[in-house]
Design a protein around this nucleic acid. Structure first.
Lengths: 282, 282
DNA sequence: AGTAATTACGAGGTACGTAACAATC
DNA sequence: GATTGTTACGTACCTCGTAATTACT
């Protein structure tokens, strides 16, 4: 007995005739006729009441149909499980403290293994570490290298913070700024900033923030509003807004280095991504 | 994906090596190696961690194994159901009021369809009728023909009751007997007599009966004991016991005609048996 | 006539076994 | 050296499609 024969049985039951079932199955009706015959031989009894030019399921055939549906459902479940497993094995779960490093990482992974997919999550430094340790993620991006012996770290990228000042703003003429120049003012910021969010709160205790969680809307609002915003030198942030000017912030807190971290006992394909990143950033 | 590949997977998991699994499956290990490879290709990922000369199930393989066992169990269940269905279709369930007619019927069925099997049950007249009507049996044997229009009846056999008198018994010299000659005496009787049991109780109200439900033991006891017993002229009852003599009973109640009954809407193979019996007894 | 299922026949593909090979114990 | 898994090659079998056949509507 073969699964294909069970599939054929189901189609025949639905189609009503061998003829139409054969068309649906993209085989000749003679092949289908013989295949049904083989199934009947295998099960030891006819599944159809036959007149000379028609067939109809008999009691045994209806029984076979029930079982066939059941077995084929199990087969489908098996295939679904495997598809999920395959996807999971192609997916790198990344816990990052900032969005830009995941963009950079995504580009590098694409070079290293075009079939792999990045599943990024912006979290706190502590959360990133613990996820890496408890296996909830495959790679972590942190603002400082790990000191644990079970974790390997390598530099991923530098990122510098800029104030994005609209035309006409009183700070628009400045060529550089400090956080103290900016404190107490109103800002429009994207909510999923992770690490940079911490910096904003720490360095600008008296500033007021309007947050936007949808990145597309945020970019739209940035064009139209005259609120101060932030940007960085990450390539994905380099958008040429004639109405705004990116002014570097000189405080050391406006400069960050992000590290890629992996567990030393991680799966092989994770290690190869890590090494590819290490070699690429050298 | 084929069921055979799933069977192979299960055997490999149990055997531990391709080599031993191939022996168990009666194929060459090269064929088995390729078959496993095909399954892996079909599922889209390897099921084994391979070193140069060993294989071990990986995570995907263990997942496949679980599904394989599940699917194969369903297949087995399907086959079991079909075996039961095949057996049922070969089995004629017969409700009879007496044992001898089922012996006769069995012989006739054997002639008519050698693959058919009789499954007899000795029951009361009413029970036989109701079983036939509610479909719990395929054929019934009764002591009188049915008058219902949905039931067809035909004579199956006559049976005459004899007293089986041991040598030395006071009745041993008699050439014929009546129930009144026998009433009040002690008898050894086989318990599964159905109709004849009714006759005994009705015609011998003061007799005492020792009943034996195991037919082999009953026949043994008949040889050794000096109790009166009964026998009939059914061929299967004609055993030549030198120590006993079968004396005919003259009352009309000692003569019975048994009828074979079937539902008019019964399945075809039941009808053909019925007709074969009708023609054979003509 | 038209449709539907079965059978005959030739062809192509596929999975098999044998055998050679590679690598580990 | 023995065992284990993979690869190469030729073969046999098996299923397919085309086409002829039969029967029912």
């Amino acid at each position: 007995m073969e699964l294909e024969q069970l599939r054929q049985l189901v189609v025949i039951a639905r189609a009503g005739t061998l003829q139409s079932a054969a068309e649906e199955l993209h085989i000749s009706q003679s092949a289908l006729s013989r295949s049904v015959r083989r199934l009947e031989d295998d099960l030891g009894q006819p599944l159809f009441d036959r007149t000379r030019n028609s067939m109809q399921l008999n009691e045994a055939g209806r029984l076979a149909l029930l079982h066939a549906r059941e077995i084929l459902m199990r087969e489908q479940r098996m295939r679904d499980d495997f598809a999920a497993l395959a996807k999971r094995s192609r997916t790198l779960r990344v816990a990052s403290v900032a969005p830009a490093p995941t963009w950079r990482l995504s580009a590098l992974v694409l070079e290293c293994d075009p079939t792999a997919i990045i599943e990024p999550d912006i979290v706190s430094e502590d959360e990133a570490s613990s996820r890496l340790l408890n296996g909830t993620c495959d790679l972590a991006v942190t603002a400082k290298p790990s000191s644990l012996p079970t974790i390997r770290s390598t530099k991923l990228m530098h990122e510098d913070l800029f104030a994005n000042v609209p035309t006409g703003h009183e700070l628009h003429g400045r060529s550089e700024l400090t956080f103290s120049d900016l404190d107490g003012r109103d800002f429009l910021i994207y909510s999923q900033l992770g690490y940079w969010h911490q910096i904003h709160r720490a360095m600008l205790p008296r500033a007021r923030f309007v947050t936007q969680s949808d990145r597309t809307i945020f970019l739209q609002q940035m064009r139209t509003s005259d609120l101060l915003t932030f940007t960085t030198n990450a390539p994905e942030n380099t958008s040429s807004h004639v109405s705004r000017k990116a002014i570097p912030i000189t405080d050391p807190e406006a400069h960050a280095t992000f590290w890629l971290c992996m567990r030393t006992d991680a799966a092989e394909h994770i290690g190869s991504v890590f090494e590819f990143v290490r070699d690429a950033t050298r």
